[in-house]
Design a protein around this nucleic acid. Structure first.
Length: 184
DNA sequence: CCCTGATTCGC
DNA sequence: GCGAATCAGG
């Protein structure tokens, strides 16, 4: 169907505000909104008068610069070898988002009365998703009941402990190929 | 070269 | 108001 871009509807502006507050970059926001360039986002941000980025963290924490922290996080994330985290889920027209493979193998709400009380019931819509919340997609992104896990995300990662385990599996369990060895 | 936001200016 | 082009910087 012809997915015309709604332009700046109230919802989109609201989302823009939230994502900008959360510290996402203009390009990231553009991807989430879809149909707009990062320039469009930046332009809108300025017109809305909310320019001026939010400082993720102070200039330094215990002698560690923001960059040091980012590097540290990057190392931690790369350690396990990521298969293909669902990422943020921009909505693609149709074909390529099998996105549920990993989720399918994971505990899903359908299973009535699960003793695993935790994790469930925290699901949130993109509007309530905050930077510190787990962005693991749950359900069909094209349907209104689509939600994100919303659990407490591990600092520096987009997922909660539950989903981070699924997203970042140790190489040992997926011993398939080893495109490492000598490349790079 | 990748990315970031900021600004300009024709539409 | 909008956003591509451009600018300035990391």
């Amino acid at each position: 169907m012809t997915e015309a871009v709604p332009s700046w509807t109230d919802e989109r502006v609201e989302l823009l505000r939230r994502l900008w507050d959360d510290g996402l970059s203009a390009s990231q926001i553009a991807l989430q909104l879809g149909g707009v360039s990062r320039n469009a986002v930046i332009g809108k941000v300025h017109r809305l008068g909310l320019a001026g980025r939010v400082k993720p963290i102070g200039p330094a924490v215990n002698g560690r610069s923001q960059e040091d922290i980012e590097v540290a996080v990057a190392v931690i994330v790369e350690e396990p070898t990521l298969p293909e985290p669902p990422a943020i889920v921009t909505h693609r027209p149709a074909p390529d988002f099998p996105l549920e493979p990993a989720v399918a193998a994971a505990p899903q709400p359908p299973a009535a009365s699960q003793p695993v009380a935790l994790a469930v019931s925290e699901r949130v819509t993109i509007m309530d998703l905050r930077e510190s919340m787990c962005r693991w997609p749950m359900g069909d992104p094209t349907k209104p009941d689509f939600r994100f896990c919303g659990g407490r995300a591990i600092t520096g990662l987009p997922y909660c402990t539950q989903h981070a385990q699924i997203a970042y599996q140790p190489a040992t369990e997926r011993k398939r190929d080893r495109r490492v060895a000598g490349m790079r």
